[in-house]
Structures are given as structure tokens and as C-alpha cells.
């Protein structure tokens, strides 16, 4: 579902220069500027590799943890059709996590290592998945807002300079095309339903609006290596540009539903042709990223439990494969 600009000014910097010569770096930049794709075995600056590993693995972790908030309503989906659609969507997220881990593995980091970094808390994932899903309407809101925000961010990644990431993103975007629409359709149904259902929809918008805006990451002024990532064409638009674009397309969608965006200062500026909004509560964002969101602990515990419970199973399969390989070698 999504990656986020999680990197903040003053924190450890994966983009800090490596041991390369100026000539190597210039030759690399020439390839990038010519819109050539970089492939796994090509020469690349260490910082480029580190930045990608960090971003792609964060993205993969977000997909995997992102299964949980929606998974929370799978057993309680209100119709068999909705149940099947939601399951297909949550499964896509598992698949997207898998494609992304594979893309990161081409850079020489193992899935085991990435999973270990997630479970130890060393690696981050998108803050949005640390919010609870309290009603069925939250499933609609997540599809509409969270996937909507994710699409804004992911479409440009299809043109990312790193070939395996770009190819994974093309597949992801193609598969995700139904995700946002199914979310909006849930909201439409609720808003055209009973008063209780409409209130449920409004409540979901109230809770998910601001966290969705935070998904684009800190303001440009506080985002560290945007400039380097932009030069390397890992990133193509700034956090604020994408956030503005999201607000501009989403507000009319809320109006169509007859819902109110929870921001008293939201207004359309005729001159700039953009919506203006109140300040984002960045303290909340940094708290959630630091582990102090409503569900951080619960999400990680579930992930750890799955990993621990599966250990004997993975081991059994590995040992079985070894036995079979030994037997066929002896035959």
C-alpha cells in the first residue's frame, strides 16, 4: 500500500557520501539524467544502494503491517461480496510486500535481515497503520483515503531510476487500481444508507483525515535527503507537492459523499487553484513514528507472534527439502 517520507532532519543519513570517486559519481549521474534504468548488478554509489534498501524495505514493511488494520474486519465483513473483496485486497498487500522485499533483495540484503530489522524496531513502516479500525466505515475510509494517498505517492515510483523497484511498482499500481474504488464505494453505500451508517462514515473520515495527510511525510523544509533522492530519481515529487495534490482531489470527493472534512480552516483559493488547510499536528506524527501510536505495540506483537509461531514450520520444510535432496543425490 505505501511508503512514506519517514526521514527527518538530523537523523542518521543513509545518503551520506560513500568512498566513490568524483568520476564514478558523475558517470552514474549522467546515466540517471539520461533516464537510464539502473539494474541490480550495475555499479552504483553506496549511498544510492543504502537509500534504496531503506526506502524499499520500509515500503515492504508498510504493506505487511498494513494488512492488519483491514484484516481486523475480515471476519466481520457485512456481506459475502464485501468479505471476498476485502480479502482480495489484503492479499494484494501481502503480494506487494513480497514484490518489494524481492526488489530490495536484488540490492544484496536478505528478507530475513529485513524482517529482523522490522521486528527489532530498527526499521520503520508507515505511521498510518498504527491507527485502529473501529468500525466497518474505517475499511471504506482506508480504501478511499489511505490508498488514495498511496497512489499519489506510488505512481511516480513506477518511473524510479532503479529497475527492480520501478518494475515492482508498476505491478503494484496495476493491481491496486481497484483498492481505492472499492473503498469509495463502501463510503458511498454508507452515506446513502441509514443515519447510523452515515454517522459511521463521518466518524471514519474524522479519524483518518489527518493521519492520511501525514502519510506524505514531514514538510519539505524538515525532510532531509529529498534533494539527493530527487537528483537520483528515486523520488520525483516533494512531500508537500504530493500532499497538496491529494487534498485537491479528495475534498470534492468528500463533498460528493455529503461528508465534512474535519478542518475548520479548509478553503479553496481561487487564485492558486489549491485548497488551503490548517497546520498538521506534527507532534502526533513524530510520536506515532517513535512508537507511541494507538496500535504500534499491538501491530508489532502480532507480527512477532506470526514469525515465532511459524519458526518450526519453516524449519520443518527446510529439513524436509534437505532430506529429499540428499536422497535423490544418493539415488
Amino acid at each position: 500500500m505505501y511508503t512514506q517520507g519517514l526521514d527527518q532532519a538530523g537523523k542518521s543519513d543513509p545518503a551520506k557520501p560513500g568512498p566513490e570517486t568524483r568520476e564514478q559519481l558523475d558517470a552514474f549521474q549522467t546515466r540517471i539524467d539520461a533516464e537510464e534504468k539502473i539494474e541490480a548488478k550495475d555499479w552504483m554509489p553506496e549511498a544510492y544502494r543504502r537509500t534504496l534498501v531503506r526506502q524499499i524495505s520500509q515500503h515492504a514493511h508498510s504493506e505487511i503491517i498494513g494488512m492488519q488494520p483491514e484484516g481486523n474486519w475480515l471476519t466481520r465483513a457485512p456481506s459475502l461480496k464485501r468479505k471476498a473483496i476485502l480479502l482480495a485486497k489484503v492479499q494484494d498487500e501481502a503480494g506487494h510486500g513480497l514484490y518489494l522485499y524481492s526488489a530490495a533483495e536484488t540490492l544484496g540484503v536478505s528478507r530475513d535481515q529485513m524482517v529482523a530489522d522490522l521486528l527489532s524496531g530498527k526499521a520503520k513502516y508507515s505511521s498510518i497503520f498504527n491507527y485502529p479500525t473501529l468500525s466497518w466505515a474505517d475499511i471504506g475510509a482506508i480504501g478511499w483515503l489511505v490508498d488514495g494517498a498511496a497512489i499519489m505517492n506510488q505512481i511516480p515510483l513506477c518511473r524510479c531510476s532503479y529497475g527492480p523497484y520501478s518494475r515492482a511498482m508498476i505491478r503494484v499500481c496495476k493491481e491496486e487500481s481497484f483498492h481505492q474504488r472499492q473503498g469509495y464505494e463502501i463510503m458511498l453505500t454508507l452515506c446513502g444508507g441509514t443515519a447510523e451508517q452515515k454517522a459511521m462514515a463521518q466518524d471514519a473520515l474524522n479519524r483518518f483525515w489527518w493521519p492520511s495527510l501525514m502519510m506524505f511525510g514531514p514538510n519539505d523544509a524538515n525532510s532531509t535527503h529529498s534533494a539527493q533522492s530527487m537528483a537520483w530519481k528515486i523520488k520525483r515529487f516533494s512531500n508537500d507537492e504530493l500532499r497538496q495534490k491529494f487534498i485537491d482531489v479528495t475534498v470534492p470527493q468528500a463533498e460528493f459523499l455529503g461528508l465534512t472534512v474535519p478542518d475548520d480552516e479548509l478553503r479553496y483559493n481561487e487564485e492558486t487553484e489549491h485548497y488551503e488547510h490548517s497546520d498538521i499536528d506534527w507532534q502526533e506524527f513524530f510520536d506515532v513514528i517513535a512508537g507511541n501510536g494507538p496500535c504500534n505495540k499491538q501491530r508489532m506483537e502480532k507480527r512477532r507472534k506470526a514469525q515465532d509461531d511459524g519458526a518450526w514450520v519453516r524449519e520443518a520444510a527446510r529439513v524436509y527439502a534437505e532430506k529429499k535432496a540428499a536422497a535423490s543425490a544418493a539415488a
Binding site: 484484516g71 471476519t75 480479502l87 482480495a88 489484503v90 519453516r314
Partner: peptide, 25 residues
């Protein structure tokens, strides 16, 4: 479906979802 996000490995996650989708269908 109760097993979603609890599979022993990511690939098994996809398989399990495929099978439950078949059964719901």
C-alpha cells in the same frame, strides 16, 4: 480468514488467501 497475517511465511499468506477466496466463492 482468521489466519490472515498469521502465516508462517509470506508466500503461504498468499496461498491461504487464495484458498479462502475459493471457499467463499
Amino acid at each position: 480468514i482468521e489466519l490472515v497475517a498469521a502465516s508462517p511465511e509470506l508466500e503461504e499468506e498468499l496461498a491461504n488467501a487464495n484458498f479462502s477466496l475459493d471457499y467463499i466463492g
